[in-house]
Computed example of a mutant assay.
Amino acid sequence: MIRSAGFLAWTVLLFVQVSSASAIEKAELNRTELQLASVNAAVAYADADELLYDKNADRPVPIASITKLMTALVVMKSGEPLTEWLEFRERHIPAPANAYTRIRVRSELRRADVLRIALMSSENFAAYTLARHHPGGYNAFVEAMNVQARELGMTNTTFVDPTGLSAENRSTAADLVRLVRAASEYPQIREYSTTRYFTGRFRQPRYRLAFGNTNALVHRDSWGVGVSKTGYLSEAGRCLVMLAEIDGRPVVTVLLDSLGTRSPMGDAGRIKRWLTTGAGGSVAAAAKAYERKKNAAYASSDSTSVSVN
């Protein structure tokens, strides 16, 4: 697979030769050992094509604000200046779900910072505003998201809005591994998505707003997080995708549809332990019950779709 110079440089920077004593090198990882609370998941080295672990990795499901990682990729590929001031315009279409925001309509912020708060703080009005200012407008932006998905080989992915507020934004864990790899090629996406805290300085009128990262793991130096995005909708559950250094290698983790705000963090910890020691850990009974319920719902939805078609 061809990688860009930026991605390769970052991978080389992270990659450290693992000694023969490493748990990864000593024995083949046992996939059955890894227990995750997330209903759908995928784990892969960033510099290799195959999945190290998959759990319903080819099942298309709602992805909530993980969508914003594709929004960021389209913004970067557009080549529009990051220094340009963008106006936060009143929505021309209703938001698909609750879209509370502290940002004032008609105020302005530079595109770079609009992108930053969309990624790090999952600001929905920011993601919407990026699409409104795309060449060709909002609809052209959404189309560009789908074109980019096809170019990346994300064959089970569909986008209908740039925020992730619509449950019709659907993808698979395997497809999202491809998205994380592509997004990691851009230093700006790596920086903006892992910014811990940020103060946005708006103008017309002039005011400030403080933002924090929605992924607690970016605050821990031991994780070496290089790309991060969280997401939540009732239809999607708790979601997390990230690129992090584990045992000296960049690892892509995709966790979709978890129960509770802490479940993706717990899963990330279990994956890290599995990759470094081979031990997969265990999950709570409530998470297992949630998984059974969601798998039954997915199966019912699939069978209904088949009968209709």
Rank of each mutant, 00 (worst) to 15 (best):
S263H: 03
A182L: 11
L209H: 06
F211M: 08
H219G: 01
D47S: 11
A41S: 12
G6Y: 01
D221R: 15
L233G: 09
T214W: 01
G224F: 01
S222W: 01
M70W: 08
V283D: 00
S65E: 11
N124D: 15
R178Q: 15
A131P: 06
R220E: 15
K229G: 04
E235F: 02
G212S: 13
A46R: 02
N156R: 15
G231V: 11
L115S: 07
V225R: 04
E151Y: 00
R178K: 15
H134A: 12
K229Y: 00
Y128N: 12
Q204H: 13
Q148N: 10
Q17M: 07
S121M: 02
A112R: 13
L233Y: 07
P250C: 05
I66S: 02
V75D: 13
V142I: 14
H133L: 04
S263M: 03
A5M: 07
R181I: 11
V225Q: 04
L179G: 07
V142W: 06
Y192I: 02
E84V: 13
S19T: 10
F7A: 10
Y53R: 05
M265H: 13
L179C: 09
V61Y: 01
A216Q: 12
V180F: 08
N139T: 06
V16M: 05
D49T: 09
F7P: 01
T199H: 03
S4P: 02
R190W: 09
A216P: 00
A149Y: 12
P205D: 10
E191C: 00
S65R: 08
A244G: 03
H219Y: 15
V18H: 02
E143T: 14
K272P: 00
Y45H: 10
K26C: 01
M70Q: 11
A64K: 03
S228D: 11
V308N: 02
M265V: 14
S38W: 05
G226Y: 04
N98M: 09
S65K: 08
G226K: 08
E123A: 09
V306N: 05
S301P: 00
P264D: 11
L152S: 07
V12H: 10
T83C: 00
R104F: 08
S234E: 15
G231T: 10
A37P: 00
Q188M: 06
E90L: 05
L36Q: 04
A182T: 12
G226A: 13
G260F: 05
I66Y: 01
A37R: 05
L73H: 09
M70Y: 07
R116L: 15
L13E: 14
K293G: 01
Y128D: 14
L8H: 00
